[in-house]
Design a protein around this nucleic acid. Sequence first.
DNA 1: ACCATGACGTTTC
DNA 2: CGAAACGCCATGG
Length: 109
Amino acid sequence: MDKINFFQKVYEVVREIPEGRVTSYGAIAKYLGAGKAARMVGWAMNASFKDDPLLPAHRVVNRNGLLTGRHHFDPPELMQQLLENEGIEVIDNQIQDFKKVFWDPNDKI
DNA sequence: ACCATGACGTTTC
DNA sequence: CGAAACGCCATGG
């Protein structure tokens, strides 16, 4: 991949996510310029697992702060486990105080 | 080139 | 308040 792929950019942003913080697919998509390509971000995460398993994909959730992608983890409960380990309160796959832990890549600039 | 799918988001019923 | 449909972009068959 000579040029930076969509996925590559997603990886960079996700790696920049500070511990104890989370972001949404839409926010990343917007940061990349796609804006409405939030689905691609999720797709990128899926590919990232076999590309970069260390990627903190568990810090990426949907706009509602719901762990929609937990089913892709192994085991699915791992995602919530990691988030709680970072100090993020997660109840029933729902992040508590999502606004407080939310980290926008556009805000980091 | 066309159709189908996907870890989303927003709007509408 | 809850569920469904549409839109949007990229990858795979």
